[in-house]
Amino acid sequence: MAEIMYWEAIRRAHDEEMARDPLVIAMGEDIGVAGGTYKATKGLYDKYGPQRIIDTPISENSFTGLGIGASFLGVRPIIELMSVNFAWLAMDQIFNSAAKVRYMSGGQLTAPVVIRSPGGTAHQLGAQHSARMEKVFMGIAGLRVVTPSNPKQAYGLLKSAVRCNDPVFINEHELMYNMKGEVPDGEYFHPLEGSEVTRQGRDVTLFGYNISVHWSMQAAEILAKQHGIEAEVVDLYSLAPLDRAGIRESVSKTHRAVIVEEAEAPVGVGAEVMAIINEECFFELDAAPVRVSAKMVPTPFNHTLEKASIPNAKDVVAAVLKMISGK
């Protein structure tokens, strides 16, 4: 197993899938000659040429629709939306075309596209470049949503998404492209559904996804070292569908749940996980579940305000201590 960066893992998945199947293409703004904003397609333009590594005009809705239309005829497009903030413009084609065409056609037509896009707050990018949009995608029938928290997932989820016959939205993160991690040397296909227990624990479950898995891990270390509390960390890399069985299993073991999300609380991942806990294992609970979420503000430019708007490991620790000891 080699240690590579998150962006290298994504690039490797592109390269392998494109080498294997001439109908796999990649498209997006500045992904070709320029190599991609986050280097996800670096060097691939030279290797595969302009027909398959496509620099698109700045027309998010229509180049996404173009990829969807091409997928009707067997092409496997990997569409990069430069930022989830721009994905709003492509919502029509993602929701109205890709997600619904299988159903509307009675199963005749499918849109096996992959749409990748980085979300999240980075460093002072301002309100229009800091959105977390997973909540918008995960409530749509006909669309899969996954969100890799490490290079192995970034590689293996993209590989599976390209081969899967459903449209898949991959929610990446601006801050994670340079994260290092081990990726199998051989081909690896990460399951698109499920969740992963990243740390075993018995006292409380911290549910995270994408970057909040790392905050949860940091919090778990602090809780163990300083407070003698053993937190379990569950990585919800599949947001649609959420892993009901995995959520139930962990809560049935720890009897406490804290959901950690980078996004604002309303209508979000935390709300949905809480609902699942209610439905699946309410009587296993020793305490009411809690969300650690972003503040309900357009992300501020000022560094201090920006930090204050987004949760961190300390907030998670505080939430757990309050839950367990009432402090």
Partner: peptide, 20 residues
């Protein structure tokens, strides 16, 4: 049913035809 929705889909099918 979305007015204008098929334009990009049609162009995408043309892209697939061109590739194949």
């Amino acid at each position: 049913a979305l007015v204008g929705g098929p334009f990009p889909l049609a162009v995408g099918m043309a892209k697939a035809i061109q590739m194949k």
